[in-house]
Design a protein around this nucleic acid. Structure first.
Lengths: 209, 209
DNA sequence: TTTACCGGGTTGCTTTTTTAACCCAGTAAG
DNA sequence: CTTACTGGGTTAAAAAAGCAACCCGGTAAA
């Protein structure tokens, strides 16, 4: 993956981030529906068409953070080391996410991150669009897992596990506990969930995370 | 004069200032000849053609600060209140500059400003180009003062006075004195210089500053 | 019930910026 | 005496950004 490193690319990335940052700041401060894209463009010192060149919809201003992980599961499966089953690779990857307190695992207690998640979960249009993202994620993961209906089922189950685990972690943190406190339970939950998944869909090969 | 206030104009002004600031910082740190325009463009995160769209020459990166005052004397003369002679208007204007410690009067002891002046005076190409600026300034001042050779002479004398006064002030400050200490002498010097000028070129009307 | 505004997006045209390549002069190295 | 850099400065084409004007659906005021 050769990412361009010229001035153009650097400034493009900066503009992208600047718009997203100002948008999320405004959303967190006033609520998604209370902030217009005009407000965001003005605050980011960018024209409206420019804003829409970077983000297809208003929702994407928020969800690009998830979009960054778009297709990640599929990639993990495709790029897994030889001799490792897909499920094990996904399990390890999720555990690694927990260990580094990756926000997508829900196991992150930075106030901004918590507020961000609440914003997403409590704003209908955002939750809706997020669901669409998950469906696409599911499709590419299914493709990575192989052909046929079985792959699709497995993909759906894996992403369901992700969703439930992340949501549970977030809920515990929203209840006031720290990420560090929750971490052991989160790992245990994940191990249990993936074990259950394995016994159901992957019991031909036992290799543990 | 309707100055545009849109995004475009704002960003243009910012780019201009960003380039100039980074250039002067580098020049002060390493010397004019030790810094290439490539270095400046890179540090300012701008391409070389862009840099040259904002500044015609490398010298202008430094001298635009003087260029900001370009034609100022002529303007002062043109926009003077009714009943005030050109010389008086210029005298008052210079005194006002002293009072607010305007760097162009040389009466400013901020280390950066002092270093900046030393940079200009001790770098041949800069001093040379600055001279060209003064000549142009002289031409428009002469035009503002009227037609004929007399106007040109008066303009030359006025700007000579400016130059000498500013240089004297800067020298005192370079010797370690503060602007506040020097201020009274600077005012006295200016009054003496303009009085001498007046008795020579303007003794038809006596109105003092 | 029009009418007017607001907010999410889009379109076409212009200006600005990047890019890469080049010119020219000086100068250091082989 | 070439040859190859380096540094100031330019050029042409392509990408990016800005601007103004517009569409459309909703909703509030007249």
């Amino acid at each position: 993956m050769v990412e361009p490193t010229g001035l153009r690319a650097r400034k493009k990335a900066r503009t992208h981030d600047a718009i997203a940052d100002v948008a999320i700041t405004l959303f967190l401060a006033h609520g998604f529906d209370q902030v217009s894209v005009n407000d965001i463009a003005a605050a980011a010192e960018v024209s409206k068409p420019t804003l829409f060149r970077y983000f297809a919809t208003k929702e994407d201003l928020v969800l690009h953070r998830f979009a960054d992980h778009h297709g990640e599961s599929a990639r993990v499966v495709r790029e897994r080391p030889a001799g490792v089953t897909p499920l094990t690779a996904l399990h390890r990857h999720f555990r690694a996410g927990l260990d580094r307190h990756d926000p997508v695992t829900g196991l992150n207690d930075h106030p901004e991150v918590v507020a961000f998640h609440r914003l997403v979960f409590t704003t209908a249009s955002l939750a809706g669009r997020l669901a669409r993202y998950l469906i696409e994620d599911e499709e590419v993961l299914a493709a990575a897992l192989g052909p046929g209906i079985e792959a699709r089922l497995r993909a759906a189950q894996v992403l369901a596990v992700h969703r439930v685990l992340a949501r549970a972690n977030w809920q515990k943190i929203a209840d006031g506990r720290t990420a560090r406190q929750v971490h052991p339970e989160a790992v245990a939950d994940a191990d249990r969930a993936f074990a259950q998944l394995r016994s159901g869909v992957d019991d031909t090969t036992r290799d543990g995370p």
